[in-house]
Structures are given as structure tokens and as C-alpha cells.
Simulated scan of single mutants.
Amino acid sequence: MAVPFLSILALAVAVVHCYPAAFQELQPSSSKYANLRVSGGFVRPSVATRLFPAGNRSSIRFLAVGDWGGVPYPPYVTPVQKTTAREMSKVAEQMGADFVLALGDNFYFKGVNSVDSPRFQETFESVYTAKSLRVPWYVLAGNHDHAGNVKAQIEYSQRSDRWKFPSYYYELDFRIPNTGKTLSIIMLDTVMLCGNSLDYEDEKPRGPVLEVEANRQLVWLQERLARSKADFLLVAGHYPVWSISEHGPTECLLQGVRPLLVQHNVTAYFCGHDHNLQYLEELGVGYVVSGAGNFLDPDVRHKDHVPAGSLKFFTGQASTLGGFVHAEVTNDKMILTYFQAKGTSLFQTVLSRRQFK
């Protein structure tokens, strides 16, 4: 997608509705909540959502997993999904998890057709059953979800006490307990931005179905990034900006999103789409690929298509049995730990708090 920046700005006044970020602090009492900023072609008032009790600790902890969506035939789950879910529950119990970022491709292979789909039970509720995973799951849509009815997934938020998918794209604002520092996460719909990709063909997005909607989201993103004073600022989408694996870098995001990540000193970009675990760094931004929740792919065909020296970690080997990322955001740093489903950590890195001039 190549959209002239001036034409994007011309849409801003008409389509962007701005609210100042209202950071809420995690409390032991359930009376306090995190602020959820909602937008997706329309804007509703902020929606409150429950979070794991903060107690006396001084960090926010979460898991990030993508491409976790089972299969559309019995038993509706894969061995990788089951082992990954089991290890997620152990890590969440031992290291803590206030919420889960679900990075798209929530239901293979064609999403769901209605809010009454049995897949919600078969592939989600009946798989992630541990008490430690009974926390909010903040959801975004992937290309396989867009092959079905994404609105049905959004509607399911009204039926589940942990499925949080208020709109196609939205913002989360948290206050890190007992620190005075803040964390914001901007959840994108990269399929709306870039178009769907047809697996088993060239696997590249073909451009947005509705360019006006793509422009609207890009304007919204630019505005939210420009206004953010969060100490840690994350962006999440399904498609990768950088990846060395089968799908490779997403040209649309390289043109439209990457410059904004760099310009606004974003801490990290989280995604899935490629079915493995990767960590890359470029121009001060961390790129987290966590797409090993259901399948595994060791493909590295795009290893020469990322900036030299940017790749810091990669695994897609079947022997890992799956994988995910644990993040802990403290007063001055974000610690990322990559786990394989067979029970050990594989890689850890530390990202610093944003610095403002």
C-alpha cells in the first residue's frame, strides 16, 4: 500500500476522534481497571476491563502468542497448540501474567462464521483452561480471521469474561503499579491496512479492500503515536514488519508503519503470521515475532531481506513443540523472554524505557 502522506493527513480532521489517555492503576481491588481506547471506523467511549490484581508488585506482565487457532475439524486443536497452552499456563503461574496478547489467526483456516460458532469453545475456551490464563485476552485479527466474520469475534467479547476484542483496532493504556510509569499498547488490524494474503500462492497482501478504511486507521495510528507520552509504547499487529521466514517483511508496513515506529520512538512491535519465534532490532525498535502457538515453520528464506545485523534470535524447529513470549514491564525496562513449549526459555532481551527530548 502506497498512500501519499498528504492525502492521509487530509483525512485526519474528518475521521480521527481524540481522547487524552486516561491511565488507570492496577489495584488489588476489582474496582479499578485499565483504560481501553476503542476505534475502528467509529469511536465509542472508553471501555473498562478487569485486570489481574496488582498487590505490592511494581510491574505489568503479559504473554504474547499468535497463530494459535487450532483446526476446523476434530479434535479442533493441534499438538503444538496443546503443548503451548500447557506451558503458557505454567509460565503465567510462575512468572505472572496480567493479560495475553492474541496476535491473530485465532481460528484456522477461515475464521468463524458467527458469534454462535462452536469454535470459540473448541479452540479457545476448552484449550486455555488453567486458572493462570483466566485473565483478559486482548485480541486482534489475522488473515485467516478475515477469511471469515471478524465482527463475530468482536461480538464474542459480550459473551466471554476474558475475550477482549472491542473493535478492529484499539488502544490499551496501563499504569505500571507502584512506579508512576505507564504502558500503552496500540492494537492494529494489519489486514485492513494491507489487504489479505492468499496462503499457498505468493502469500503477500494484495492491498486494502477499502483504501479509505486503511487510510483512516493509518491516520489514527499516527495521531495516537504522536500524542503518546507513555514510558513504554508498543504496537501490535498480525503481519510482521520484519521477518526472515516464509512470509518475510511486509512491504505495506515497511512503507506506512515502520517510519512511524521509528519517528515516535516506539519500544517494540509485536506480531505473528510466520509460525516461529523471532527477535529483530532496527533503529531502536524491537520486532517481536511470536507466531508459534499452533504450527511450527523453520523456513528462513528471507534471511537476506532484513537489515544486516538486525536478527538476534530465531527458532521454528519442531523439537520446540511450540512457543510464545513473556514480557515484564518495570519502572525502567521491558524484559522479553522467549519460551519453547517443552519447558525452557530460549532467549531473553531487555528494552529500555522511552526517552523524551
Rank of each mutant, 00 (worst) to 15 (best):
T179D: 12
T190Q: 00
E211M: 04
A152S: 14
Y168H: 14
K151A: 14
V212D: 13
L218S: 07
Y200W: 12
P177W: 08
P205I: 01
R216W: 14
W220E: 01
G195P: 05
T182Q: 05
E223M: 10
D199H: 09
P205W: 01
Q217R: 10
A152C: 13
K151E: 15
L221I: 05
G207A: 04
Y170M: 04
D199G: 02
E211C: 02
Y169N: 08
L218Q: 12
Q158V: 05
A214P: 07
W163G: 00
L193D: 00
D173Q: 11
P177I: 05
N215M: 15
D202S: 01
K164S: 10
S160N: 06
L172A: 12
L193W: 05
S197G: 05
E223C: 05
Q222K: 12
E203G: 02
E211D: 04
L172K: 02
I176T: 13
Q153P: 09
L188V: 09
C194L: 06
L218T: 03
F165A: 04
W163D: 07
E213K: 12
K181G: 00
L198T: 04
T179W: 02
N196P: 07
Y168M: 08
L198I: 12
I176A: 04
D189C: 07
K204E: 03
R159N: 14
Q158L: 13
Q153M: 15
F174R: 09
E201G: 00
D173V: 01
Y200A: 14
E203F: 05
N215H: 12
I185H: 05
R216Y: 14
L193S: 06
L183T: 03
L172R: 08
L221M: 11
P205M: 03
Y168T: 06
E201Y: 02
L218P: 07
P166A: 12
G180K: 10
E203R: 03
N178D: 12
K151S: 14
S167A: 15
D161Y: 04
E155P: 02
Q153I: 12
T182A: 11
G195C: 05
W220V: 00
S184C: 08
Y168L: 12
E201F: 06
L193M: 15
N178Q: 12
L183P: 02
G180R: 10
V209H: 11
D173R: 09
A152M: 11
Y200L: 11
F174H: 13
A152D: 11
V209C: 01
P177R: 08
R162N: 14
G195A: 00
N215C: 15
I176P: 10
D173H: 13
F174E: 06
D161G: 06
N178L: 00
M187K: 09
S157P: 05
D189L: 09
D189W: 08
R159A: 11
L188H: 08
Q217K: 00
